[in-house]
C-alpha cells in the first residue's frame, strides 16, 4: 500500500471494526463537523451493506451553527442511520448547573455533563470520536483506545500499553472507552481525504460573507445572539470560512477566499497558524486546558 491516504483509511476502518467486534453498545459521536463526517464515511466503508452497529450521537450545546445541525440531520436521514441528540440546556436544567457567562459564553465544559448523561442513559460502553493527535499536545499523548473510569476520566499516567494493531477494549461494567480511529490523521490529511472521496460538507467550511466581532486577540467571531457584546465592540463584515466547526461562542472564523477543496488545501498548506490556534478560544485559557478537560471526562 503505497499511498498514505490508503494506509490511514485502512487503519481507521480496522479500528472501527474492532469497536464493533469488541463492544456491546457502541456510539459514534457525530457533530456535523469535517472530522466526524470522515468517520461516518469510514463507517460506511467498514459496515455496508449492513447497518452501522451504532447510533450517531450528538451533544448539542445550543450554540451550534445551524448549517452544521441541518447537515447533521440530513446526512443521518440520507443514510437511514439512527441519530440521538441530547441538549446541554436540558442538562443545565436537570442538574441545576450554572450556564456559561461572559462575552463569549462557552458551554464547552458543560457538554461533558451531557455526554456522561447520554452514556449512562443508553449504557454505551464505547464512544467513537473524531479527535486527532495533531490537534493538541494532550491529544498527542492519548491511545487509540482510551479507557475511562466510571466518571469518564482519563488518567494520562496510567494508560494501557497499546501494541501493534492489537486493541484491548476490555473493561468492567460502568467503565467506558473512547476510541479515535483518525488519531493519526492531520488536518491536511482530512482535507486531502475529503477531496479524494468527494465528501459533502456544511457550507460554513467554504468562503462566505459574515458579520463578525473582532476579539481582543484579533480573532473573528460570528456575530450571533449568544454573544454578550458591549457597545465598544467592533462588528465588521468579512469574507471568512471555518477551519473547525465548534460552538459559535468559542470558534473563530478565518479570513478566507477558499471556495474549493483545492483552495482550502492550498490555504492550510501555507497556514502559519495551527487549526486550534486559529479557531479555538477554549484552549487559550491555559497550557493544560485540554488535558484538564479530558481528565474531567471530555472526549
Amino acid at each position: 500500500m503505497k499511498d498514505y491516504l490508503d494506509e490511514l483509511e485502512a487503519e481507521a476502518i480496522y479500528i472501527l471494526r474492532e469497536v464493533a467486534g469488541q463492544f456491546d453498545r457502541p456510539a459514534l459521536l457525530f457533530s456535523g463537523g469535517k472530522d466526524s463526517i470522515c468517520l461516518v464515511h469510514l463507517a460506511l466503508k467498514a459496515f455496508r451493506p449492513g447497518k452501522f452497529p451504532f447510533p450517531l450521537v450528538h451533544v448539542d450545546t445550543g450554540h451550534n451553527f445551524q448549517e452544521a445541525l441541518d447537515f447533521r440531520d440530513s446526512l443521518a436521514a440520507e443514510l437511514g442511520e439512527q441519530l440521538i441528540v441530547r441538549n446541554v440546556v436540558d442538562t443545565i436544567a436537570k442538574h441545576n448547573l450554572q450556564d456559561a457567562k461572559g462575552k463569549f459564553p462557552s458551554r464547552n465544559g458543560l457538554q461533558t455533563h451531557t455526554l456522561l448523561d447520554v452514556i449512562e442513559e443508553f449504557e454505551f460502553d464505547v464512544c467513537i470520536g473524531g479527535a486527532r493527535r495533531d490537534e493538541e499536545k494532550a491529544r498527542a499523548k492519548e491511545r487509540v483506545f482510551s479507557v475511562r473510569d466510571e466518571f469518564g476520566q482519563w488518567d494520562p499516567k496510567l494508560q494501557r500499553p497499546e501494541l501493534w494493531s492489537i486493541y484491548n477494549g476490555k473493561i468492567d461494567k460502568g467503565e467506558n472507552v473512547r476510541v479515535f480511529p483518525i488519531s493519526n490523521w492531520t488536518e491536511l490529511d482530512v482535507w486531502n481525504y475529503i477531496k479524494r472521496e468527494n465528501l459533502q460538507l456544511p457550507e460554513i467550511y467554504f468562503t462566505h460573507e459574515r458579520e463578525c466581532v473582532v476579539t481582543e486577540q484579533g480573532q473573528l467571531m460570528a456575530n450571533n445572539q449568544f454573544l454578550n457584546l458591549e457597545e465598544t465592540d467592533q462588528v465588521v463584515t468579512k469574507k471568512v470560512r471555518y477551519r473547525t466547526v465548534g460552538d459559535m461562542t468559542c470558534t473563530a472564523a478565518v479570513e478566507s477566499e477558499a471556495f474549493t477543496f483545492d483552495d482550502i488545501i492550498a490555504e492550510i498548506s501555507n497556514a502559519k497558524i495551527s487549526e486550534r490556534g486559529a479557531t479555538r478560544m477554549d484552549d487559550r485559557i491555559s497550557e493544560a486546558a485540554m488535558e484538564d478537560r479530558k481528565k474531567g471526562g471530555y472526549f
Binding site: 493527535r133 493538541e136 499536545k137 494532550a138 491529544r139 498527542a140 499523548k141 494520562p156 499516567k157 494508560q159 488519531s183 493519526n184 497550557e287 493544560a288 488535558e291
Partner: peptide
C-alpha cells in the same frame, strides 16, 4: 504534552 511532564522535564508517555 502533559502537565506532569513539563513540571518534571521528562517524557512519561509516547507523544505522536
Amino acid at each position: 504534552g502533559l502537565r506532569a511532564e513539563r513540571e518534571q522535564g521528562i517524557t512519561i508517555d509516547v507523544a505522536y
